[in-house]
């Protein structure tokens, strides 16, 4: 068979992808090496724009928030997904279907809307969280969740987790169902309690899924924008600033083309490296 039909089949997808993704990536990379004035390139400046990264405290704060986001995501929704999947796997098919649909439901809600809903739950004056704490007699634990530097990022992560843990449940469930049941039967004969089977059979055999979800979470943690922008816009102060919001502000609010391009390139290098690592690790299995 000649190769011509193959290229024709590829052409439409490649054209669209090339024109609106690949080309802008190349342009952004080029932009980062120029000095800019009012959106017009002035001259090649080498790595001068990159040198500004070192003293940009907002950049380092943003990067650390992205990193914290990864850790929080691994610690909460991922672990919750693992536990829930392991519990659910032993229930009837009907329960599995209904519960996984319930857990997965928040994922279908646009992050913008999730941000609005939770922004309201967290509202210090008439928010439901403080109201609920009051009801339980724990009113003194209430706070201005998204408006305090100390709680804003963690509170936002609870929203992110809300949209993510169901996905983890679904992925883990798929993997658990392919584990050889005789392993569990053997452990049962030995009288092993549930948590021992969980620790010694389920968790180790789901390593690939954990690796996949962990890398997925890490990449998503670098990519997310909507949730922060619609709730805190990076504030209070820079408490929830992430790389994407820093790019947005540097470009659209400050109009600093060269440095916005530098930040974009840093963001791209990080996500592309993470995905390269992901493909290498997952293919090696």
């Amino acid at each position: 068979m000649t190769a011509r039909p193959a290229y024709l089949f590829l052409l439409p997808a490649l054209f669209l992808y090339g024109a609106f993704v690949v080309l802008p990536i190349l342009q952004v990379t080029a932009y980062s090496f120029f000095s800019w004035d009012n959106g017009i390139a002035q001259g090649f400046v080498g790595f001068a724009n990159y040198a500004r990264l070192g003293s940009d405290t907002v950049f380092w704060a943003a990067l650390s928030h992205n990193a914290i986001w990864v850790v929080l995501t691994l610690a909460f929704p991922l672990m919750a997904g693992l536990l829930l999947a392991a519990i659910l796997a032993e229930r009837g098919p009907r329960t599995i279907q209904i519960m996984s649909a319930i857990y997965f439901l928040p994922r279908t809600i646009p992050l913008v809307v999730a941000g609005i809903i939770w922004g309201w739950i967290y509202n210090p004056l008439f928010g439901l969280l403080n109201y609920g704490l009051d009801m339980l007699g724990l009113g003194n634990l209430g706070g201005a969740w998204l408006a305090e530097e100390s709680t804003a990022l963690v509170s936002l992560n609870v929203v992110g987790a809300w949209t993510f843990f169901g996905f983890c449940v679904v992925i883990y469930l798929g993997a658990i169902q392919s584990i050889d049941p005789s392993l569990y039967e053997a452990a049962e004969v030995d009288g092993a309690p549930w948590w021992r089977k969980f620790r010694d059979i389920t968790v180790p055999l789901l390593r690939n899924s954990t690796l996949f979800l962990g890398l997925y979470a890490a990449i998503e943690a670098m990519r997310f924008f909507d949730l922060v922008w619609v709730t805190t816009q990076g504030g209070p102060g820079y408490a929830t600033e992430v790389l994407t919001t820093h790019v947005y502000k540097t470009f659209f609010l400050v109009g600093d083309f060269g440095y916005a391009a530098v930040l974009s390139v840093v963001l791209l290098v990080i996500v592309l490296s993470l995905s390269a690592i992901a493909f290498r690790l997952l293919r090696a299995k």
């Binding site: 690949v22 932009y31 924008f225 391009a261």
Partner: peptide, 20 residues
């Protein structure tokens, strides 16, 4: 080339895309 694009976030290309 396509695989690389799997993870490209919209905010990272917006600086050039907007001008285009």
């Amino acid at each position: 080339l396509f695989l690389a694009g799997l993870v490209v976030p919209a905010p990272s290309v917006i600086v050039a895309l907007y001008g285009n």
